[in-house]
């Protein structure tokens, strides 16, 4: 019976893998730095793409990624990208978010996912995790960050913008 169950579970996974597609950012509440509630729906970018970057104050590669994006933030803004950095810090470390982002002087929006509800809803198993969204539709996801990934992401965004402009 056990083997049969495992067999069916595996079969289900493969079956689903070819057919399924959830490609939207779910409607969920995040907190602003001031503690106010904001829904993910209101974060969609009408002019271009939105990049969600899931990070935490204790995650070294996450901070490397955000630092590297911030260093060339003007280029990203020109490409009409909204950067949304979602902190997954829970109450152990969330008090470090506000001083850190001010100390770093990052020039993009920061929201808090304190009980990691959005992280759970998007099946994010570890951070850093990057998601690119047009409207509410997810068009790209990446687990982890290595130096240079932000450049490749930027190139991807330019190519998507080009495709989109051609369609219009």
């Amino acid at each position: 019976m056990k083997n049969l169950k495992i067999y069916f579970i595996c079969l289900s996974i493969f079956n689903f893998s070819f057919l399924l597609s959830q490609d939207r950012i779910p409607s969920m509440n995040l907190k602003t730095i001031d503690g106010k509630t904001i829904n993910t729906k209101s974060l969609s970018n009408k002019n271009g793409l939105t990049v969600y970057s899931f990070w935490a104050t204790w995650c070294v590669p996450c901070i490397n990624e955000l630092d590297d994006i911030d260093k060339e933030i003007d280029k990203w803004k020109e490409a009409k990208v909204n950067i949304v950095a979602v902190s997954t810090d829970d109450s152990r470390t969330k008090r470090r978010v506000r001083p850190m982002i001010n100390g770093k002087n990052w020039d993009f929006a920061i929201y808090l996912d304190e009980n990691q509800d959005l992280k759970r809803a998007l099946n994010i198993s570890g951070i850093p995790h990057t998601i690119v969204v047009r409207g509410n539709k997810i068009i790209y996801r990446r687990i982890g960050y290595k130096p240079g990934d932000e450049r490749n992401l930027y190139e991807f965004i330019l190519s998507q913008n080009k495709k989109f402009d051609e369609k219009i």
Partner: peptide, 12 residues
């Protein structure tokens, strides 16, 4: 918990 912040500086 209390803190002070300014551009480029954060204290908590």
């Amino acid at each position: 918990n209390t803190g002070f912040f300014n551009k480029g500086l954060g204290l908590d």
